[in-house]
Design a protein around this nucleic acid. Structure first.
Length: 280
DNA sequence: CCCTTGTTTCCTGTTT
DNA sequence: TAAACAGGAAACAAGG
């Protein structure tokens, strides 16, 4: 199987991603001072805000909203009361429990939660040291990486709800094609990228929106993203070089649109879904 | 076992 | 010069 290119070993091309693994996210947090001094403290705090098992009922509710939004599922098609629980209870649910609680949407929710568990487990591993390196990259026009994106975890506002007032008393089973396609091994690359963009709280300056409404975004730490992607695919030799090849294949499928002249910049295409703020 | 999809690897050449 | 970008080819992994 493995190719034995007699050439130069298959040792990692000494990816210098380490230099990208800083944590600029500390820079845009309003609560500066003390909390930033002790990495362990901050790390623990961060972990509690992101690890599903520590979520409060409210956070579980927000996760539900977010997941439905991303997958464009009618919020009315799922009985929220079945998820009136905290993160610990949520994490104890089996795949079958999800199916019982949310019907056909159960598998999507189950997968989503699995992703949350996964990222909350590995992200801190990849960004362990919180060296306060306030580097906002060179970006003339725009300012901070994340302005007032809808805060997911710390939240206080029920972010982009499909329709806050959505009356619709009757359950609308009018779901276009919810659990259709077979999604091998969880998420696809473009979905992985999209989800990083959609969760600013877990996006330590890896990728940034250039034009939110147009779906244009830019990699700030290309190698770090590649490492994270590799982690998800259990491939420690992933590099931006290879990840970008996969990204280029998306042009033909119109999942991405070409943005030439601007390095590390991509744009979601007509076949990419779930990235718009109010695309519902 | 075969076929398809979605990458993953590798490589050569061009551009920034 | 060091990264990115471009694609063609071929290998792979997982599902059907």
């Amino acid at each position: 199987m493995v190719r034995h290119t007699g050439c130069s070993m298959s040792v990692l091309p000494s990816v210098s991603a380490e230099s990208q693994l800083s944590a600029p996210w500390a820079s845009h947090y309003p609560t500066t001072d003390v909390s930033m001094v002790t990495p362990s403290y901050a790390g623990r705090l961060w972990a509690q805000e992101t690890q599903p098992q520590y979520w409060t009922k409210f956070q579980v509710w927000e996760w539900l909203q977010q997941t439905l939004d991303v997958h464009q599922i009618d919020a009315a098609s799922i009985p929220f009361q079945n998820f009136d629980m905290d993160g610990r209870q949520l994490c104890n649910m089996s795949f079958q429990d999800f199916t019982r609680a949310a019907g056909p949407m159960g598998s999507i929710l189950y997968q989503s939660l699995a992703d949350m568990k996964w990222s909350s487990q590995y992200a801190p591993e990849i960004f362990p040291t919180m060296d306060i390196k306030t580097e906002i990259d060179e970006f003339p026009c725009s300012l901070l990486p994340f302005k007032e994106e809808p805060a997911f975890f710390p939240a206080s506002v029920p972010l982009s709800s499909p329709s806050p007032s959505s009356p619709d008393p009757k359950r609308s089973n009018t779901r276009p094609h919810p659990v259709k396609k077979h999604n091998p091994r969880g998420t696809h690359l473009w979905e992985f990228i999209r989800d990083i963009l959609l969760n600013p709280e877990r996006n330590p300056g890896l990728i940034k929106w250039e034009d939110r409404s147009e779906g244009v975004f830019r990699f700030l730490k290309s190698e770090a993203v590649a490492q994270l992607w590799g982690k998800k695919k259990n491939n420690s030799s992933m590099t931006y070089e290879k990840l970008s090849r996969a990204m280029r294949y998306y042009y033909k499928r119109e999942i991405l649109e070409r943005v030439d002249g601007r390095r590390l910049v991509y744009k979601f295409g007509r076949n990419a879904q779930g990235w718009r703020e109010s695309e519902k």
